[in-house]
Design a protein around this nucleic acid. Structure first.
Length: 269
DNA sequence: AAAAGGCCCTGGTCGC
DNA sequence: TGCGACCAGGGCCTTT
């Protein structure tokens, strides 16, 4: 699933293909993706020049001449540039561009969403307004204030986009592993110093993933720009700990698969 | 009010 | 081989 680093890569790659191109038409095969009234969305978007592409957390923002719309890829959303109008089963939204190419939003599970926002103020409008800072600009003291009385497991808190934005299930597992912290550890067990380390570890892991994406994806693959699952995972989906060779435990937290090493991330009583 | 649970979706995998 | 059951899960909504 695309998390902050994957969306960053999609943004950087896609930018080269669509900025300064005009949306001349749009075809919507699966309307539920678009949260606005469909006609309203079409009226707002068709005829508009794409002036920029931005990212906040896991959200992608298409900045147009007079408006903007926010896109969340959720689990399997992808953007493809097609040079011929040969659309496939899961191409749900197709933007016709003025150079004759097609920007297609492809999403097998149909979980992704798009919603109109404001060109100048999208960061202060829903859904972006409720997001916390990205780890890169998070103040550890503020994060500490948010979690230091909480009984909620730290892994769950890392997934709370209102505390810090951009971390999904894969990186939450990786961050806990890098910290040597048990994912079930309640937020209130972390000292300020530990929270500082947590923010730092989050930055480091996300930055490394972005760097890998930046060097590995220069153009569209046959499958579209869908992120960097080649990122070397230390614990997520792993069977054996890369450090101590213990068997990696898999359990659910907040309904999400949680991987951890019982020895390197020992539970403290 | 906070927290837990359900929902949306399809393709892949598993067991029989 | 066929087929049903189950799993993956981000964010939003409903229920407790």
């Amino acid at each position: 699933m695309p998390e902050l680093p994957e969306v960053e890569t999609v943004k950087n790659t896609l930018k080269n293909f669509i900025v300064n191109k005009r949306i001349v038409d749009i075809r919507v095969n699966y309307p539920r993706i678009i949260e606005n009234d469909l006609d309203q969305f079409k009226r707002a978007v068709v005829g508009q020049l794409i002036t920029d592409l931005d990212r906040v957390g896991k959200y992608l923002i298409f900045v147009l001449e007079d408006t903007a719309f926010v896109s969340h890829l959720r689990m399997e959303g992808k953007y493809n540039i097609l040079t011929k109008p040969e659309f496939s089963k899961h191409d749900h939204i197709i933007f016709y561009l003025d150079d004759g190419t097609y920007l297609s939003y492809n999403d097998t599970r149909k979980f992704g969403r798009m919603v109109l926002s404001s060109k100048s103020d999208y960061k202060n409008q829903l859904p972006l307004s409720k997001l916390g800072p990205e780890p890169f600009c998070a103040d550890a003291k503020v994060v500490y204030q948010r979690i230091h009385k909480s009984d909620i497991p730290i892994k769950h808190l890392l997934l709370d986009q209102t505390i810090m934005a951009g971390i999904g299930n894969i990186y939450a597992n990786e961050i806990c592993f890098a910290m040597g912290i048990n994912p079930f550890t309640p937020g209130k067990r972390l000292t300020l110093k530990r929270v500082e380390q947590l923010v730092q570890a989050s930055c480091k892991i996300l930055e490394a993933a972005i760097a890998q994406g930046g060097t590995t994806i220069h153009s569209f693959s046959a499958n579209g720009i869908d992120g960097l699952f080649q990122v070397s995972l230390q614990v997520h989906l792993q069977k054996e700990c890369k450090i101590c060779h213990s068997e990696i435990i898999k359990e659910k937290i907040k309904g999400r698969s949680t991987y951890y090493c019982p020895k390197c991330q020992r539970r403290k009583s």
